[in-house]
Nucleic acid binder design. Sequence first.
RNA 1: CGGGGUGUAGCUCAGUUUGGCCAGAGCGCCUGGUUUGGGACCAGGAAGUCGCAGGUUCAAGUCCUGUCACCCCGACCA
Length: 569
Amino acid sequence: MPAEAEIISHQLMLRAGLMRKLASGTYIYLPAGQRILLKVIQIVREEMNRAGAQECTVPICQPMELWQKTGRVDDYGQTLGTFKDRHGRMNVLSPTAEEGFTYLASQEIQSYKQLPVNLYQINTKYRDEFRPRFGVLRSREFMMKDAYSFHADQECLHKTYMDMYNAYKRVFSRCGLEYVIVEAETGEMGGSGSHQFTIPCANGEDVIVYIDQQDQAWNLEKAPVDPLPKQPAVKVGPLTEVHTPNVGSIEAVCGFLKVKPQELIKTLIYKADAEVFAALVRGDHEVNQEKVNQIFVGQHIDLADEETIVKATGAAVGFAGPVGLVGRVGKILIDHAVAAMAVGVAGANKTDYHITNVVPGRDFPMDGQTIQVCDIRNAVQGDTYEGKTLLFKRGIEVGQVFKLGTKYSVKLEARFLDEDGSRKPCLMGCYGIGINRIIASAIELFHDEWGIIWPMTISPWQAIVTPAAPEKEILTAAEEIYRQLLDRGVEALLDDRDLRAGVKFKDADLLGIPIRITLGTKSFAGGKTEIKFRSAKEKQLVDIAKTADYTAEQVKKMLDQLNDVEAIG
RNA sequence: CGGGGUGUAGCUCAGUUUGGCCAGAGCGCCUGGUUUGGGACCAGGAAGUCGCAGGUUCAAGUCCUGUCACCCCGACCA
């Protein structure tokens, strides 16, 4: 076991022989891992087809031209894998396939009568991640199911969106996964309306914010917070400038002035395209850039560079403050939590100086043309939404559905003639599922100190026959049962390796096969086999003659339990 | 891309500080024997251009320069 495998799913995938690393963020799937992959893919495929989507394949290697047209060469930046071919053409290694599918639509769709259409593929994706990690959870190459739907109107898009939403619930339920559906921002993809399907577990990279029994859940970018109650007014002295040489960071200011972070007003200078604006949050809070994006719809938001900051505030970086800032920047966003402060410490807009006794409303205005009090920070422990306490959990994002709108159809001219004879861009939705992430999160969810415990539906094999003694008769009987299982459609494995019983048991446990059938000297003499479920402690004795039938029955029962899609909301 | 770290047997790693015997251990592998229900034991054995390229030196795994790969932390990504 290499020390580099830090999370349990990564460790177990290596130890159980599901995969091997080829290079940073790329993995070879070994036979057992490949079987799991195919199982998951098959479930996804069945549910997509059931929901009316049709499978295609779009090349992984695509002309960069298409990506230039949609502007995503710049959007993706370094993450986009590219190469030049022998003719000097630039190519893109597809990290997702809006371009490919929209191109297809632009060629094939002429009339509203052809709509809606929902196409998908299950294919390798490539992203040149700045830092691959967590095994298969953030890798450079991965398997993704991605679907793209095309519509003439919003209602139709919404219907397909909900069809996909429900198909996803079935997919994850059938894979045996517990999941949380969170409202999400659409990020780089643009558009509006999105949900993420998230598997709650300690090693997740995402933060899920929810209330009550997950009645409502959001990702951190989207989670709303109630404004904090106005702090009771206190007697404060006049504004006082204090010399704080080289004390620019929140931490440094706190140490220097002996105050707590929540007593500071943090002033961040941003650029929205060409316009400079300021965002005020409390010292212990973080600006949520997605929330800021929502205020400057359609503009490119980024932290201002040093030069811009110096020009706007008249001070070095680290000494910006709200007092006297009106007029120097285009806009000032004040987080509710800042507005609620009775008094605080802020930068003085003067290098090496801060001001104390800053009272919001007294020392800087909280309304006006260019001033907006709003929610622009990340939720933190203790926050509420509509009076209910926000709860936090980590999760792995395994799927996302979103309404894309016309971003791609406009740029790639995927248009149709509507009933009224006008030419319109298709409305689009797109829907992704991370196949490898399903596998990793299943392991994160279902394992014990011995190894993986697969849900029956995605287990590489359903049952394993383990002869636990070297006697000829036992080996023969094991082989016989193995054949009977295959005849009954059970995906069985026969551990006929010339090894001690303990080794075989450990390996079976590690690999996580749901049902183990053991033939040992004692029970065999009594005409019995031992059946043990990976998820249970105790074993049961079954007549040798009835073993295959009994196992097949159990396998079917366990499959039905997970595949019973009628029971799913 | 910035900061830190690692590269030595199939795998996991020691040895590098302070240059000097023959480059080591555990696991795995091979042979023979004893074992055989939760990762057995004994005996013997094979196995390494010390990441790569230069350099310093009587002498380099160890020092210097360059280079590559991989890992960890962070910039915010599916």
